[in-house]
Amino acid sequence: MNEIKWIKLSVDMFDDEKIKLLEKMPDGDTLIVIWCKLLTMAGKGNHKGYIMLTESFPYTEDMLITLIDRPAATVRMAMELFQRFGMVEFDETSSAFLLPNWTKYQNIEGMEKQRELTRKRVARHRQKQLEEPKPVDTPELPDGNVSGNADVTLRNGAREKKEESRKKKEDIKDKPHGQQVDLSLFESIWKLYPKKVDKKKAIAAYTRAIKKGTPHDTIATGLQHYLRYLDHNKHWLKPQDGGRWFEKERWTDEHDLSQPTRTSATPDHSQYDPSFGKELPF
């Protein structure tokens, strides 16, 4: 994210014909709330109107339903209406939703400046980590000055220990960004997980994976594939407990979405599972 804390809303927003039509529809107030939430999500991501979780990871419709926190049917109806009204478009190339008039109403110059400032700050931070301190010259003393040589040896030893400690700290700082554990990123994908069980175990597994060098985007993308797999087989497949899914690093699984995995030989769970056939909460 690029640290955008605000977006512009026109004072005559409710004079717009499209907004007036939306207000007159069933659940009109909810449609307006959904539209405002999409605006804030586009602003928070700061990707020129694209609604993205990260720069390479777009929100799917199911993810938007989860985060907007309104009835699924209402959100789907809203997205369809917004696209028919030209308020939202779906970019086939990036598989992402975008707001086509974003540059018309927002302070793009200011937002782009913020993106550039963020890039420069990151670049300065990395350059600072790479810089090594200048070596300190130790004055030479006459060979006969035993006491002086001893003092120099002690000072050098202390300096070497201090330098060694500093290098260890620099090594830790100089690790790739993917090794830094940002639990706010974990929270962003935990919100999407349909069965939020044993969160502490999930956090521990996520932290362990990030420290080992697994990029956050890899985990997020794996979860996206898992959600699609669940949706593809939602009439018989239930989601795994969240803690166990993260602990087993299930984001590495490969899922076949070409056809439902259940065959005629699979037992009919509806006969003994009262929750069979219910819609999953994502």
Rank of each mutant, 00 (worst) to 15 (best):
T221W: 02
T221C: 03
T221Y: 02
G222L: 05
G222R: 04
G222Y: 02
L223P: 09
L223T: 10
L223N: 07
Q224A: 04
Q224N: 03
Q224E: 01
Q224L: 05
Q224F: 00
Q224K: 13
H225T: 09
Y226F: 10
Y226M: 10
Y226E: 07
Y226D: 01
L227M: 14
L227T: 04
L227G: 03
L227Y: 05
R228H: 05
R228A: 09
R228S: 02
R228N: 05
Y229C: 06
Y229D: 06
L230Q: 07
L230R: 10
L230M: 13
D231T: 01
D231F: 02
D231K: 15
H232C: 14
N233V: 10
N233A: 04
N233H: 02
N233R: 11
K234W: 00
H235M: 14
H235T: 14
H235V: 00
W236F: 11
W236K: 06
L237G: 02
L237H: 06
L237N: 01
K238A: 13
K238L: 12
K238R: 10
P239K: 08
P239H: 02
P239R: 02
P239M: 08
P239Q: 08
Q240C: 12
Q240P: 00
Q240F: 03
Q240G: 00
Q240I: 14
Q240A: 14
D241P: 13
D241R: 13
D241Y: 07
D241L: 12
G242D: 07
G242N: 06
G242L: 13
G242H: 06
G243M: 10
G243W: 02
G243I: 06
G243P: 08
R244L: 15
R244V: 14
R244H: 10
R244Q: 13
R244N: 12
W245A: 06
W245Q: 09
W245D: 09
W245R: 05
F246M: 09
F246A: 05
E247T: 03
E247Q: 14
E247R: 12
E247S: 14
K248F: 05
E249K: 15
E249G: 05
E249T: 11
E249L: 11
E249H: 09
R250G: 13
R250Y: 06
R250L: 10
R250D: 12
R250M: 15
W251S: 01
W251M: 04
W251Y: 10
W251C: 02
T252I: 12
T252K: 12
T252P: 01
T252M: 11
D253Q: 11
D253K: 11
D253Y: 04
E254F: 00
H255W: 15
H255N: 12
D256E: 01
D256K: 06
D256I: 07
D256W: 00
L257A: 12
L257H: 04
L257V: 14
L257E: 06
